[in-house]
């Protein structure tokens, strides 16, 4: 009996030895998102937001995983939409180089950078790929949505009167700038807001028309 129990104690660890190293977590149209991609995305977000690396406990937080997964689903939907414009290339190379340089300049050497990234199970190649992808998607979104933004003079005036001036007053600013001086800035702000709104709508449409299946 004792011998059988000892054998049972020894056997169980061997049964637990096979490990799932990766699998499909979600299917978006004809593309898939794997568990490793979710993990990598979570660590990438943590890195660029200067948060601690994602540990196993955090990976078991369902709401956290769902949020990361949602972000990846949206990226996939936008990447699929981008395929409809094969002739166009999106992303500004100089801007990408600037972002990469900014990242590298935070460390005294490339070894220090790599060591820091390794804490997040990331490599420089991972970072480059993520940066490029982000830039391309942002450029594509801008390409698609900016032409749809139509701001009227009334809208600019309303923002100036009802949002900007009260804000400046509440900050204690004595001299309030005239409308013409801040018109360009107001236009920029409202354009960004409108693009975000259009993006939300667009993503909603993409989600409703796409086939999305969560497997885990």
């Amino acid at each position: 009996m004792t011998l059988r129990l000892c054998l049972l104690f020894l056997l169980v660890p061997s049964l637990l030895h096979a490990e799932i190293v990766d699998r499909i977590a979600a299917i978006v149209g004809n593309s898939v998102i794997t568990s490793s991609e979710i993990m990598e995305e979570a660590n990438y977000r943590a890195y660029i937001n200067s948060q601690p690396p994602v540990d196993d406990a955090r990976m078991r937080d369902i709401s956290f995983i769902a949020a990361v997964q949602d972000r990846l689903i949206e990226q996939t939907l936008l990447a699929e939409a981008q395929k409809g414009f094969p002739q166009a290339s999106f992303g500004d190379e100089s801007q990408f180089e600037q972002s990469l340089q900014k990242l590298r300049s935070r460390f005294p050497s490339s070894e220090a950078l790599h060591s820091d990234l390794a804490r997040y199970a990331l490599t420089e190649e991972h970072m480059i790929a993520h940066l490029r992808e982000e830039q391309a998607i942002m450029a594509f979104v801008d390409f698609r949505l900016r032409p749809q933004v139509r701001l009227t003079e009334d809208q600019l005036q309303v923002y100036y009167q009802q949002t900007l001036l009260p804000q400046l007053r509440s900050e204690g600013q004595a001299t309030l700038p005239p409308f013409d001086d801040v018109k360009a800035e107001i236009t920029r702000v409202l354009t960004e807001q409108e693009i975000n709104r259009l993006l939300d709508e667009w993503l909603k449409n993409l989600r409703s028309s796409a086939s999305i299946k969560i497997l885990e």
Binding site: A18, V21, D22, R23, I24, T34, E37, L215
Partner: peptide
């Protein structure tokens, strides 16, 4: 290579033959 495993899963799915793909590793 984890990246190769991930890419393998993508390519297996892209064949259209499989509804789910899981990679298991064992010493």
């Amino acid at each position: 290579r984890g990246a190769d495993i991930r890419e393998s899963i993508h390519r297996l799915f892209a064949t259209g033959r499989f509804a789910d793909v899981q990679a298991d590793a064992q010493p």
